[in-house]
Design a protein around this nucleic acid. Sequence first.
DNA 1: CATGAATGAGTGTTCATTCAT
DNA 2: TATGAATGAACACTCATTCAT
Lengths: 196, 196, 196, 196
Amino acid sequence: MPKIVDHEERRGEVVAAARRIILRDGIEAATTRAIAKEAGYSNGVLTHYFADKDDILVSALEASHRRIAERLADKLSGLGGLAALREVLLDNVPLDDDRVQETGLEIGFWGRSLTSPDLLEVQRREAAELRYLVLSLLQSAAEAGEIRTDEDLEDIAERLLALVDGLSVHRLLYPGRVTDDRLERLILRELDHLSP
Amino acid sequence: MPKIVDHEERRGEVVAAARRIILRDGIEAATTRAIAKEAGYSNGVLTHYFADKDDILVSALEASHRRIAERLADKLSGLGGLAALREVLLDNVPLDDDRVQETGLEIGFWGRSLTSPDLLEVQRREAAELRYLVLSLLQSAAEAGEIRTDEDLEDIAERLLALVDGLSVHRLLYPGRVTDDRLERLILRELDHLSP
Amino acid sequence: MPKIVDHEERRGEVVAAARRIILRDGIEAATTRAIAKEAGYSNGVLTHYFADKDDILVSALEASHRRIAERLADKLSGLGGLAALREVLLDNVPLDDDRVQETGLEIGFWGRSLTSPDLLEVQRREAAELRYLVLSLLQSAAEAGEIRTDEDLEDIAERLLALVDGLSVHRLLYPGRVTDDRLERLILRELDHLSP
Amino acid sequence: MPKIVDHEERRGEVVAAARRIILRDGIEAATTRAIAKEAGYSNGVLTHYFADKDDILVSALEASHRRIAERLADKLSGLGGLAALREVLLDNVPLDDDRVQETGLEIGFWGRSLTSPDLLEVQRREAAELRYLVLSLLQSAAEAGEIRTDEDLEDIAERLLALVDGLSVHRLLYPGRVTDDRLERLILRELDHLSP
DNA sequence: CATGAATGAGTGTTCATTCAT
DNA sequence: TATGAATGAACACTCATTCAT
């Protein structure tokens, strides 16, 4: 009997290693050699589990999103409408060290996506899910009379998501300007303004 | 007599070349060779005018911001307060092809800045100027009674700047979601909401 | 009871797989992984039946020759002398797609043989058999008065075999020059010139 | 003033190094590293003078052919028709150590050409020149009444060229069978048979 | 000053081989 | 016996940087 290895588990290990490197040193530092070393394997292992480097990067991006989604799912249990939306937005903003690193990873991937069609597609697919969630919550909030209905819900969704990403970037780049307090306050106030 | 060369002029030529490449093909395409070639010089020239590649990139970022600032200065002549603020925000958003490319450059630099202290410092310095401008215009608008004064002006400034950057990123990554129309509408509405 | 495996049969399967790959995609495509996969086994099996990759290649060359010899044996049944010789020569020339591929395999092995003593030895051994066959047929043809006897039979054999290989190479490399018609015509005319 | 290097000269050095390796150890041994080392330069130099490895290989093949052509030109001076043809054929056959190595190089390239369109094209172009030369000499020989005219000249040309290549391969692979004497004798007899 | 030749480490990727299970 | 995980050297190629001229 050969040594049996759970492929998904190994992929997970490698992807986690890639993620750690990207979080720690940026996406440019994520060379195949560095990833293999960080994962504790030789260069050659990567071929067994990934088609190529892009496959690793894409998986790392998906893993990061999955991680965020799972964390969010916990927080959302039992919530709906505006209350859930509040959690979604606050969760998508770098209010603790973990999320600061996740934002750094995200920004690195944005740059790559601009010149890599494959990555861009993943980026879009993942972003579409978040947008769908926000839009759904806005709709249920509207039906529940929690928010005003004089603005197109899609417009609101895009505004909220843009604000979240913009504030996230600024939190990382200009931490002196965008403090945790201000970050949270701006998000919450934006939601308050939706009230009827 | 030794050949007299205007150092700043040469630096400018090279930096402009680097900027063109980054705008056109992305920051990853900006190799020293490519930059030298685009500038019409040999590889070796770069050493005379720049410490290293990072020096070129930093200068290219500064040049990009300077260019944006100059363009903006033209549009602002004669304007003040809210009207000027509107121009500032609309100008900082990718509503035409030039600005789409500029946004791409910016996003690329964001990623780099997260792991390069030099780049980060420039990024912060440049961003501080824009923030100062927005804040000043908000203040004069407040003094002129053009906007409500029930919100901290710094908060407003950060919100506007975050929205601008967030929408800019989304315009590039998710053009199907953030159309030119929606982009402009969201910016203008944000300003409308500042009215007393 | 231990599993009983017919070593020769397993070797045969793997060698046949190697041969298929070389015929289809060239000798460079015959990696150990590709061979194992084509044979329907795992990488590891190869070690049990072959010393190393070269062992597989050598066997593949022998298998290819064996296959050609068997095909030829069918065509020769009942024939002798000049008539048999004609079949031998025409059969050794790429007049259909199968033989085009066989010629490709052969040419690939020629290159390898020049730097691999093992391969060279196999090549020589196999070639010696064909030469012996041609020479035998020439002798019986001579005894039957079917061919002139003013030229050394060994010279004739070498000339015929060289012509066959030379034309085969040119058929593959310069198909525009060496058409099927010309190929066949040149072979047959060469035999005609042997007539007394 | 920079160090001025004759590009063609450097290319020549590298190509010569590649040729030496191919002649000595076979075309598979001609890795870019090995070529650079053999040429006495670092890996990086190759980029200055060649687009990629294929460029080097193609150049090496062309250089080999050029070398052969130049050597032949010397021998042909003052000759024409059948006498010139005799020199052409004898020169294209491995009758000394230099030409044995050249033949080895040629055979290695044949194998590569079967899977590399670029190489195949060069191979064909170069071969076409030799064919043209042989055909021209056959024509002038025919006009001069030196050879019989009952066979298509193109057929004769292909036969002669195939014989030359076939004998060349066999000389390398089966030196015990195809001696220098027999090689020369078979070529010359082939020409004798063309006599009217 | 400017050139461009040269370097050599580094990139992603491939591969024959080994070996614990 | 058979598996397939794992290795690590090798591959072609790229790049920022150095430096003699």
